[in-house]
């Protein structure tokens, strides 16, 4: 009870290392080795030539010099096409949201039976798996050159992405409020409107805004295959070796995309 220091409890051997630690180190080493093998295997296929970067550095410096100063003489047409690009993104996103709400609900395992959500999910996989550029080329054949083909391309692809994000939000809801709505004698649709949607709405809005941001980026390239917007101009100036103009177009795209990203990120924060 006096000054005698309490004897510390002896720690049994091995208590301070997790069981199977040795095995884990070996597994980690094997995983790293496997990763290195994959990198080596892909080296050839991807035609990696780091020495060329050094050898051709003079050419590249010359090439870069041609970008500056940017040539803004045609800025009116750049701006006009950039705004068309935003228009394409707006309509592509809005139409996609309209489709993603029902498709998202139909691919949620807690809303519909398996024989509904599995086929719908596979359909959404198809929409998502194909890049917007590919859809744009297909829709140009269907509806002709111009922004409408771009809208269609974004619409289909974004429906696939948003439906997946929407259904993931739906599957993560708290089931108890839904049961509360069910207990009142509500119909299945009322259950979704009153019990499910209020819970997922903030996330849905946030995902939609995020997709709008990425669609502005995508819309600026679908034009390269002829689906309208700033991409058409970008393609022409690159093909014409007009690098000063290319630089101007790229600066306009960067300005638009970053400011839309900033604003949309701010708005998204309000909903979470």
């Amino acid at each position: 009870m006096t000054a005698a220091a309490p004897t510390p409890i002896p720690v049994p051997p091995g208590a301070l290392t997790p069981p199977g630690a040795g095995k884990r180190t070996l597994a980690q080493a094997l995983a790293w080795a496997g990763f290195a093998l994959v990198l080596a295997w892909a080296w050839k296929g991807a035609d990696i030539r780091p020495l060329d970067l050094a050898r051709d550095s003079g050419n590249m410096a010359q090439f870069l010099k041609e970008f500056f100063p940017p040539d803004f003489r045609e800025w009116r047409s750049y701006l006009r096409e950039m705004i068309v690009t935003v228009h394409i993104a707006i309509w592509g996103t809005v139409l996609a949201i309209g489709c993603a709400v029902p498709f998202g609900l139909l691919s949620s395992s807690n809303i519909v039976p398996i024989w509904v959500y599995q086929p719908v999910r596979r359909l959404m996989d198809c929409c998502r798996a194909i890049n917007e550029m590919v859809f744009a080329m297909l829709f140009i054949v269907a509806v002709g050159l111009g922004p409408f083909a771009g809208v269609m391309a974004l619409w289909v692809h974004t429906t696939g992405t948003l439906a997946k994000l929407f259904s993931e939000a739906v599957e993560a809801i708290d089931p108890r409020p839904v049961e509360g709505v069910r207990a009142t004698g509500a119909s299945a649709l009322e259950e979704i409107f009153y019990g499910v949607i209020p819970q997922v709405l903030p996330l849905w809005i946030s995902y939609s805004l995020y997709r709008f941001e990425s669609n502005v980026r995508s819309a600026s390239v679908v034009g390269m295959v002829g689906a309208g917007g700033i991409g058409v101009i970008l393609y022409e100036v690159i093909r014409g070796f007009e690098y000063a103009q290319t630089c101007a177009v790229m600066l306009i795209i960067i300005t638009f995309v970053s400011s839309i990203d900033l604003v949309s990120a701010r708005v998204r924060k309000l909903f979470i």
Partner: peptide, 8 residues
């Protein structure tokens, strides 16, 4: 657990 819809 009351089972209300909290956001409404």
């Amino acid at each position: 657990q009351f089972n209300l819809v909290g956001r409404l």
